[in-house]
Design a protein around this nucleic acid. Structure first.
Length: 919
RNA sequence: GGGUGCUUAGCUCAGCUGGUAGAGCGUCGCCCUUACAAGGCGAAUGUCGCAGGUUCGAUCCCUGCAGCACCCACCA
């Protein structure tokens, strides 16, 4: 083995080994465990969030696979309707072409080609991250099978009256020229204006003033309303107003919808362009005047001078015309929320169109119940509040999109306007008895991407067919997802899953936080703070990193600032850290926090951890032989101690995995590996291995323990760090008497009931404290490591002496003392620095070694600390209520502490005196 | 307007059912001691956001306040 761990050399080889041996396929006859992957965009690349999520899913998958479950991690990708269409459209635009030139079919062919070219990227990246998905079951939402599931779901919902077509106001994205759902609209607060406009009475006698944030929509006004109890306007009800610039007359009406406190108390009603006005219009039977075209220009419904103008251009013109006519009373600055399409960024218009909707209330009710009754559990639990909040206020879901890329809606129109829904034109003709002579035209629209996503947990397993996989793995075990798509995806899977299968799609939803950069900022291309997870794995030079971050920006003017920030943060680019270090970092980031700050420094720390493990393995391998020599084995206290600690760690890790606390799992295994196994046990083993005087049985016991502890530790670490553990395991396993193709299929460590040995742990605590005490003196008094000090023991109990005798070799080596002889009865203690261990005093004679002032300072510091503690504990015991009410063991413990403090203080005083006399 | 979180060492974060404040990174000493300088040994650092309350005892439970996030919502 090399002296330094170099991940690059082994990761690719190991992944191929796993895949070629079919190790990702469910095996055995244990209880099923299944995770379906949240499908990434097929044409995309993995970002840090994916890598994080994949790490968690892979850890869970590997954990359950090792635990003997029949484990499936179902992979796949999503066609991501709008996102993909936009990307390809932009490519076309760059070539100076548009999708309309290609036509629907040509455009879709082009997307499919792009998918074939770029679709492998994600799979390649996932392999690099060690994802143990079952590639043989890879799915794509537009595969024939998936598409059939989508069609089937649509047809069934329609037949059940849960899908309908309706004309109403929708959120219209005038750039993408499609309807979008409420969820795809992002409302941001922006500063705009409130225009106060006079609407004269038709009879020429006076006017009312309305306040609006959207003056251009006045072209579509059909009424003005005031509150029935608004004194200012009472009596005006029913009078006609001359709508400026249009030559139309509209009524002034009294309606409680108007808020007397806002603006002037008069509100203009534009039912075709405002969701509220639409409701009022419906209620009052007002007409609808649609003054906008699909690309948000003024339509022919409006007066001639404004037709064809863009909405914002029209606004300027209208305001100017009103001002010229003396009808503009004033303009006030006004904060308002502007709705924008989450993909295009365009201001979304409420627009009147025909769309398909899912009637959601009947689906939501059981989905709410499933969570209320605990058939589905959110982790962390309080995400259910968010879920309930949304589900209880949910509105019908607009599922049609005016796009070309996606699942075409399986509905056909006859010339008489009737709509026929079915799986194909043939089926429709047959079921509805439409002769071939009657032409049928299929709906042009496609379905919202999230419609197919909502079916994902069962469509990937074969639904609507009753497959073996569906029967085995559905309901799936856990969904791993970010909180940002609870509404988009999680809620919809629950609704449609329950509806179509009668069962929940998953039993638990693990909701993780979102990865942000080191400053807590969201990672995005335009901020220039994106890190490609594979650049952390493989490393990247500064020039390449700069190029990656500054090319293809939507706003190229940001490039210099991005370059500056990047140079500052990564002056030498990014070093290679390997997949395992990155994965371990992700695991340790997986706290219950919502925002997870990614800091490269931590990856570096965990890369060092990999190196530590690697070198510990080197030590074990060079200290043992393969196979271990048979014969009687004698296990030392150290052997039993590390075994005891190992099993405590195993218990902790298992518990953490079960609770989805990957951070705690990572911490437990890190601490065991570094602080117990490496810092102590390996050092304990050296005297036995290297003294040359150890009995063969002792040697065998220590070697056995070294190998078995390491081998178990590797299995414990494997779900988090699959590559390095596999690489080492292949070498260590034979010595542990294990055979197997891979560590992947070895059992996950289980706790042994007899492993915990409290007496041994207590003795080792004593040994370690002894060593630490001496080391502290050495450190503080600057005694060179090469100097072997002769220590003396004062006040040693028979127990102390026995412990020292049993552990002398280890203590001498690790504390760097030449020996430690007890003071003879009546012998005066030498001038010495002292470490206290209960009643025992470890004396380090100071002759020629010690700086008196330094030692006095050290004693003084310790004393003030003890005095503080003593004061606090004494006050506590002085409180009668404490003594009366606190549990007996707490009180007793407090008394013991006080005794200890007092004893130590007395010794300190004595020591202080003795050192002072050295002056 | 409604809802959900967060506030602990210079930075990033743990802290399980209330009982002596922890880690990583960074900082400061001393060491190239044959597993590891991507290392070893040692050290320093916290009125646990503020104010009340419950309790013998609060970082932890309750109330209020402040600051910071995020989500939902149609106020023209």
């Amino acid at each position: 083995m090399d002296k330094t761990y170099s991940p690059h050399d082994i990761e690719g080889r190991i992944y191929r080994h796993w895949e070629e041996n079919g190790l990702f396929t469910p095996a055995g006859d244990g209880p099923p465990f299944c995770i379906v992957i949240p499908p990434p965009n097929v044409t995309g690349t993995l970002h840090m969030g994916h890598a994080f999520q994949d790490t968690i899913m892979d850890a869970l998958t590997r954990f359950h696979r090792m635990a003997g479950d029949r484990t499936l991690w179902q992979p796949g990708t999503d066609h991501a309707g709008i996102a993909t269409q936009m990307v390809v459209e932009r490519q076309l635009n760059a070539e100076g072409r548009t999708r309309y030139e290609l036509g629907r079919e040509g455009f879709n062919e082009r997307i499919w080609r792009w998918k074939e070219e770029s679709g492998g990227t994600i799979a390649r990246q996932m392999r690099r991250l060690g994802a143990s998905v079952d590639w043989t079951r890879d799915r794509f939402t537009m595969d024939p099978g998936m598409s059939q599931a989508v069609q089937d779901a649509f047809v069934r919902l329609h037949a059940q009256g849960l899908i309908y077509r309706g004309k109403r106001l929708v959120n219209w994205d005038p750039v993408l020229k499609t309807a979008v759902s409420d969820l795809e609209v992002q409302s941001e607060e922006e500063t705009g204006s409130l225009w106060h406009i006079r609407y004269p009475f038709a009879d020429g006698k006076g006017h009312v003033t309305v306040a609006t944030t959207r003056p251009e929509t006045m072209l579509g006004d059909v009424a003005v309303a005031f509150h029935p109890e608004d004194e200012r306007y009472r009596g005006f009800a029913g009078r006609k107003l001359a709508l400026p610039l249009t030559g139309r007359e509209i009524p002034l009406i009294a309606d409680a919808f108007a808020d007397p406190a806002f603006g002037t108390g008069c509100v203009k009603l534009t039912p075709a362009h405002d969701f509220n006005d639409y409701e009022v219009g419906l209620r009052l039977g007002l007409p609808l005047i649609n003054i906008l075209t699909a690309d948000a220009k003024i339509s022919d419904e409006a007066p001639k001078p404004y037709r064809g103008l863009d909405r914002f251009e029209a606004r300027k013109r209208i305001v100017a015309d009103l001002e010229a006519a003396g009808l503009l009373e004033k303009i006030e600055p006004h904060k308002l929320t502007i709705p924008r399409g989450d993909r295009s960024g365009a201001v979304v218009e409420p627009w009147l169109t025909d769309q398909w909707y899912v009637r959601i209330a009947p689906l939501a009710a059981p989905a709410i119940r499933a969570v209320e009754q605990g058939q589905i559990r959110f982790v962390p639990e309080n995400w259910d509040k968010t879920y309930f909040e949304w589900m209880r206020n949910i509105k019908d879901w607009c599922i049609s999109r005016q796009l070309w890329w996606g699942h075409r809606i399986p509905a056909w129109y006859a010339p008489d306007g009737t709509i026929h829904v079915g799986r194909s034109e043939g089926e429709v003709r047959k079921q509805d008895g439409i002769p071939a002579s009657v032409p049928l035209r299929q709906d042009e629209d496609v379905l919202d991407t999230w419609f197919s996503s909502a079916l994902w947990p069962f469509s990937t397993l074969g639904w609507p067919d009753k497959t073996k996989e569906l029967e085995t793995f559905y309901p799936t075990s856990v969904l791993v997802t970010g909180f940002d798509i609870i509404f988009f995806w999680v809620a919809r899977m629950i609704m449609l899953g329950l509806h179509f299968t009668g069962e929940v799609p998953f039993r638990e939803v693990y909701v993780h936080g979102l990865i942000r950069d080191q400053d807590g900022q969201k990672m995005s291309k335009s901020k220039g703070n994106v890190i490609d997870p594979l650049d952390i794995v493989d490393g990247i030079g500064l020039p390449e990193l700069l190029a990656k971050r500054t090319t293809g920006l939507m706003q190229p003017q940001l490039a210099p600032a991005i370059e500056r920030a990047t140079r500052k943060q990564f002056p030498g680019g990014i070093a290679a850290h390997g997949t395992d270090a990155l994965r371990f970092t992700f695991a340790s980031l997986a706290t219950q926090s919502r925002d997870l700050r990614f800091d490269l420094g931590r990856v570096e720390g965990y890369r060092n951890f990999c190196n530590k493990l690697w070198n510990a393995a080197r030590f074990v391998l060079m200290s043992t032989e393969a196979p271990l020599v048979d014969g009687p084995e004698e296990f030392s206290a150290y052997d039993r101690w590390i075994r005891s600690r190992l099993h405590a760690t195993i218990a902790g890790v298992r518990e953490a995995f079960t609770a989805y606390r990957f951070d705690l799992a990572a911490q437990a295994v890190y601490e065991f590996t570094w602080y117990e196994f490496c810092d102590w046990y390996l050092e304990f083993s050296k005297p036995v291995l290297q003294s040359g005087t150890s009995a063969p049985a002792q040697l065998r016991g220590t070697r056995r323990t070294l190998v078995e502890t390491l081998e178990t530790l590797l299995r414990l670490l494997h779900p988090l760090m699959p590559f390095i553990t596999e690489e080492i395991w292949q070498r260590v396993a034979p010595r542990a008497g294990k055979t197997g193709t891979s560590i992947m299929r070895q059992p996950f460590p289980a706790t042994l009931p007899d492993a915990a040995v409290p007496e041994i742990e207590a003795e080792m605590r004593w040994v370690m404290d002894f060593i630490l005490g001496v080391r502290r003196i050495r450190g503080e008094l600057d005694i060179a490591p090469s100097v072997q000090i002769p220590a003396r023991l004062q006040g040693a109990s028979p127990d102390d002496l026995a412990r020292f005798a049993r552990n002398e070799a280890v203590i001498r080596r690790l504390a760097g003392i030449a020996g430690a002889t007890p003071l003879a009865a009546g012998e005066a203690p030498p001038q010495a620095a002292a470490a206290l261990l209960g009643e025992l005093r470890i004396l380090v004679p100071m002759a020629g070694l010690i700086d008196v002032d330094a030692e006095l300072a050290r004693l003084g510091k310790r004393r003030s600390k003890l005095e503080q503690e003593l004061a606090r504990a004494t006050a506590k015991l002085g409180n009668e209520n404490f003594v009366r009410n606190a549990p007996a063991e707490v009180v007793a413990q407090e008394r013991e502490r006080i005794a200890g403090f007092k004893r130590e203080l007395a010794q300190l005083a004595e020591q202080h005196e003795r050192v002072t006399s050295l002056r």
